[in-house]
Design a protein around this nucleic acid. Structure first.
Lengths: 239, 239
DNA sequence: TAGTGGTCTAGACCACCAC
DNA sequence: TGGTGGTCTAGACCACTAG
């Protein structure tokens, strides 16, 4: 492996190389990686160094390892990991898996806020998807998802949009969301939101502005979700 | 080191032993631990095994290490780590460090909800502290903190309550909060909350119900905080 | 049985810090 | 200069999986 002039520990260089290969599509979600020894030989480092990089990637949910089988690129489209970023729960703490209906898909220019959140400078075309999430046939979350067309070409023409957009991003665009940042506000539902969520006027709702980050560190999606927290809570554990 | 009948990897046994010593007060917040080799010798394992346990504890914010100096028990009363669990930010993303005023301290029996959240079965005496957090002389968060008297004996007689309760827990009671779980709701401020936060009637506020967990895994504090998110957001990153 | 990841050890060398 | 943690290597053995 080429050693950069600016010093980075070997195991971090191995880490970078693996991330690069996943980002380039050389290894795709669900693929198995070579064994520790094979990878170490190929990159010219020791098995222990490779292991350290691999374990770091496991800690970040980018890889999964199973003793006796091998090392795999995480499939974020698994039921379990699909809802890793979905933080709404019933008050008793039970997970909620909602249904999703697409309400509308529009293509337009990004607003100033969207440009800033998505770091857009040149191509300002974005897709706005409005979605209604329902649970037991009752509307629970109304959200607008903003995607740069440059990142997701043709996503506005997509006919079958799955329950989880993250699965679509991964399968069709090779984009793996590995981190999200949520900013939560309490607001009064406006007319559109009350109507969609079937709430009385002036209901308080939780507004969640989310930035989603790809494996390469770019913010590739920004969304605003409104949730009535009468029957649900946003639950998060910080360590 | 004694090896338990039920197999646990050596490095996890080392991990457990270190946690136990911190929990027992053998090493206190800010203390330095023996070097990797000294600890390895004492416990009868290799330096690499000790290192693995130590690094895991660093990942969990229980220890801190500095090259050339040593390994230290985290002081959660550091400015930096004190606010690790404080998730309110200005909309631009700047951290907010508020002032705190104690409004009242009461001792009473735990409610059913508090018993459940704090896993109380025998001694039901709890202390309720009402606190108002202000930023730039404006009230921003009103909260009620519930502490079991069995865990914090005499805390209701405390004269000097610092800005961060977690620092008090650590210094006086040897309790280190290592994990919190927040449940967020959007609600309409009631009379008490609007008055404390100086808000008009019917303002939406973010309600945060928090369970705080000690190093030994027990929930030792439960609180409810109300925040007006007009000028602040609750911000969290999930990986 | 062969191949994989998981644990554990021993030792070398480097970078940082304090005296 | 001596002691600390940080990186890197080499190799042994164990546990799990699959054919």
């Amino acid at each position: 492996m080429t050693v950069s002039t600016k010093y980075r520990p070997l195991y971090q260089q191995v880490y970078d190389e693996i991330v690069k290969r996943i980002g380039d599509g050389y290894w795709k979600a669900g693929d198995s990686l070579p064994s520790e020894f094979a990878l170490a030989d190929e990159l010219g480092v020791s098995q222990g160094t490779t292991r350290k990089a691999l374990n770091q990637l496991v800690a970040e949910n980018i890889l999964r390892r199973r003793q006796g089988k091998g090392t795999y690129v995480s499939e974020h489209s698994n039921e379990s990991s699909l809802y890793r970023f979905f933080r709404y729960r019933e008050p008793e703490g039970d997970a909620v898996i909602p249904e999703t209906q697409i309400q509308s898909v529009k293509t337009r220019q990004a607003t100033a806020k969207e440009q800033s959140k998505l770091n857009l400078s040149e191509n300002l075309n974005v897709v706005e998807m409005a979605r209604l999430r329902t649970f037991k046939d009752k509307p629970v979350i109304y959200e607008k998802v903003i995607q740069p067309l440059a990142v997701f070409p043709g996503i506005d023409q997509e006919l079958e949009i799955p329950n989880s957009l993250y699965a679509l991003y991964q399968e069709k665009y090779g984009i793996s969301i590995v981190e999200v940042t949520d900013e939560l506000h309490a607001v009064i539902a406006d007319h559109e939101v009350s109507e969609q969520l079937n709430l009385p006027e002036n209901s308080p709702v939780l507004m969640n502005e989310r930035s989603s980050t790809n494996i390469d560190g770019r913010v590739v999606e920004w969304s605003v979700a409104y949730c009535c927290t009468k029957n649900f809570v946003y639950s998060v554990t910080i360590k």
